[in-house]
Design a protein around this nucleic acid. Structure first.
Length: 289
DNA sequence: AACACCCCCTGTCGGC
DNA sequence: TGCCGACAGGGGGTGT
C-alpha cells in the first residue's frame, strides 16, 4: 500500500502524539510480522522516551532515549491507528481490538498507538541510533525524491548505461528511494515516457542532462507533492493515523485505469495494463514514448 | 553486476 | 450462493 506519500502522511499524523512521549507499555501479540520481532522487543521499548519520528524512503524511524531506534515498515497493508485520551476508541480499548492488531503501544501522555497489518509484510526492528545510516536496510538506499539529491544531472548519471526498463529503474530503491508501483506509473505518464523504454535511453552521454531526465524529475516531485497534499491514496487498507482516508486515488491519471481514455488533452490513446517484473504497469501507449 | 522470477500472507473481487 | 483464480501499495532471496 504505502508508498512515500502514505508513509509521510502517517508520520505526520503520529508525530504530535509520539515525540516527547514515553512508552509505558507494549503489547506484542505475535512472535513475528514479516520478520521475527527483535529479542526482548517489549522490554527494550518500555520506559523509553521517543525523541524524534522520521521517515527515510518508505521507513519510519523513532529515535529513542535508550540510544536505539525503532525501525518500522508498513509493507502492503500496515496501518497505525492513533487514539488519544479523549477519543472513543481509547475508552473502548480491548472490546474494539481488530483481527490484525499486532502491536499496541501505550504512551504517556496517554495515547494508544495500534499497528494493524493483515498481510504482515510490514516489520519492526531495533537498531543502534549511532550509525543508523550504515544499517543494512538503509546503507544501499538511493536519494530521497523530494530532497536535493534528486535532480536531472544526478538522474542522468544514475541511469547512464542502464538497460532495465524505466519502470524497473524507478522502482529500484537503490536509485530513488520511496517510489512504488502507483507513483512510478503516474510520474511516467506525466513525463510522457514509456515504462518499457530502457532507462539508459533517456540520458545524455555527456554534458547537460537531457530534457527527458529533466521532465521526469519534475514529474516525480510533482506527483509526490500533490499526493502528500491530498493525504496519500486509499485503495483498500490505507488510512491516516486518525483513521481518515487519503483521496489522491481520485487524481490517478493511469493507475488502475485500464481501458479508459487517456486523460492527456488531445490524446486519442487508451490506458493499457502490462506486467513488468510481476507487477502491473498502467500507461498510455500513444503519448508515453 | 544486473536482471528475472518466486516467495512471504490475507483479503477481495470478478467470472462462471 | 459458492467456489476458484487473479490480483493487491512491499521487498528479500535465489539462480542465471
Amino acid at each position: 500500500m504505502p508508498e512515500l506519500p502514505e508513509v509521510e502522511t502517517v508520520r505526520c499524523g503520529l508525530e504530535p502524539a509520539l515525540v516527547g512521549a514515553r512508552i509505558d507499555r507494549v503489547e506484542q501479540r505475535r512472535p513475528d510480522l514479516r520478520f521475527p520481532f527483535p529479542e526482548r522487543f517489549v522490554e527494550r521499548l518500555q520506559g523509553a522516551r521517543i525523541e524524534t519520528l522520521s521517515r527515510r524512503a518508505k521507513y519510519m524511524t523513532a529515535a529513542l532515549s535508550t540510544g536505539e531506534t525503532l525501525i518500522m515498515h508498513l509493507g502492503m497493508t500496515g496501518r497505525f491507528l492513533l487514539a488519544g485520551r479523549k477519543t472513543a476508541e481509547f475508552h473502548r480499548e480491548g472490546a474494539r481490538s481488530e483481527t490484525h492488531d499486532h502491536v499496541v503501544f501505550h504512551l504517556d501522555p496517554e495515547a494508544l498507538v495500534t499497528y494493524n497489518d493483515a498481510r504482515r509484510f510490514g516489520f519492526m526492528l531495533l537498531a543502534d541510533t549511532a550509525g543508523l545510516d550504515c544499517h543494512p536496510l538503509f546503507r544501499d538506499l538511493g536519494v530521497e525524491p523530494l530532497g536535493n539529491g534528486l535532480n536531472a544531472a544526478w538522474l542522468n548519471d544514475a541511469f547512464r548505461g542502464k538497460t532495465a526498463p524505466l519502470k524497473a529503474a524507478l522502482m529500484d530503491q537503490r536509485i530513488v528511494a520511496g517510489l512504488g508501483n502507483i507513483y512510478v506509473c503516474e510520474a511516467l505518464f506525466r513525463a510522457g515516457l514509456s515504462p518499457r523504454r530502457a532507462a539508459g535511453t533517456i540520458v545524455r552521454a555527456r554534458g547537460t542532462p537531457s530534457a527527458r531526465a529533466e521532465k521526469l524529475v519534475v514529474a516525480i516531485r510533482q506527483v509526490l507533492g500533490e499526493a502528500i497534499e491530498a493525504g496519500g491514496s486509499t485503495l483498500r487498507d490505507y488510512a491516516h493515523a486518525d483513521g481518515s482516508l487519503g483521496y489522491f486515488q481520485h487524481a490517478f491519471r493511469v493507475y488502475d485505469r485500464e481501458g479508459e481514455p487517456c486523460p492527456r488533452p488531445g490524446c486519442s490513446g487508451t490506458i493499457a495494463r502490462i506486467v513488468q517484473s510481476n507487477r502491473s504497469t498502467f500507461f498510455c501507449p500513444v503519448c508515453q514514448r
